[in-house]
Simulated scan of single mutants.
Amino acid sequence: MVLRYLGMAVALANISIIIILLSIYWKNYRKWKSEYTLGLLIFGTFLLIQNLLSMGFLAPPPPMPSGGEHGNDYSLLLINISQLVALSALLKISWK
């Protein structure tokens, strides 16, 4: 259960960074009308959708009647952590 909450926190951090990046890319697109920047906007939008869906999968499920566990939450947590590292590097490069 703790891994689910940790995964949700990391996904929320990812969503925050993606929103900041999208605002930077939107500002740049309005200024230069570059196809590359438009591509970044489209990619960022799909990445945002993916992270929002990830939050849904990580939301704690209702308790099982038998009191059993719901399985392994490591995979989504590791995916979200790797995205957080990559998005942080991208934000550092993009921030001016």
Rank of each mutant, 00 (worst) to 15 (best):
Q83C: 05
L21W: 03
L41S: 01
E69M: 09
A13L: 04
N72M: 03
K27I: 09
Y25R: 07
S34H: 01
F43T: 10
K96A: 14
L41N: 02
A13W: 00
L47D: 09
S94Y: 10
G68M: 12
I79R: 12
V2M: 08
L84R: 05
Q83L: 12
W32N: 15
W95A: 09
N51Y: 04
N28K: 13
S94V: 05
S94M: 15
G39W: 00
L77E: 05
L78A: 15
K27N: 12
L3C: 09
P60T: 11
F46H: 12
E35K: 15
S88V: 06
K33I: 02
A59M: 08
N80P: 01
P60E: 14
L38N: 08
A89C: 09
L48I: 01
A9D: 15
K27F: 11
V2A: 11
A9K: 09
K27M: 09
M64H: 14
W95Q: 03
S23V: 13
G71I: 04
L48G: 07
A89F: 13
L91E: 05
L38P: 00
A59S: 10
I15R: 10
I17M: 14
I19P: 00
L38H: 06
A89D: 03
A13S: 10
L52Q: 00
L53T: 02
T37P: 00
W32M: 09
V85T: 11
M1R: 07
L22C: 08
L76H: 07
L3I: 08
L48A: 05
S94P: 04
K27G: 05
I24H: 04
A86F: 10
S54A: 12
N80I: 02
P63L: 06
L41Q: 07
Y36C: 02
I15C: 10
I93V: 14
A89Y: 15
D73W: 10
P60G: 07
G56M: 02
L22W: 00
Y74F: 11
N80R: 08
M1T: 03
E35I: 10
L12T: 14
R30M: 13
Y29N: 06
G56Q: 01
V85E: 02
A13I: 04
I18C: 06
V2E: 12
M8G: 08
G67H: 06
G67C: 06
K96S: 15
M64C: 03
S82E: 04
F43R: 07
M8W: 01
W95F: 09
F43N: 12
P61C: 00
K31G: 00
Q83V: 00
M1G: 13
L47Y: 05
L53W: 04
I93P: 05
I18V: 15
I20K: 09
Y25Q: 09
L53P: 00
N14P: 06
N14F: 08
D73V: 10
I93H: 12
M8K: 08
I19V: 09
L91K: 02
G71M: 04
T45Y: 04
A59Q: 06
M55T: 05
L90S: 12
F57S: 00
K27T: 13
K27S: 14
L41P: 03
L6W: 01
N80K: 01
L84E: 09
L40P: 02
G68S: 14
L76W: 07
M1S: 10
S66L: 02
L21V: 11
M55A: 11
I18F: 07
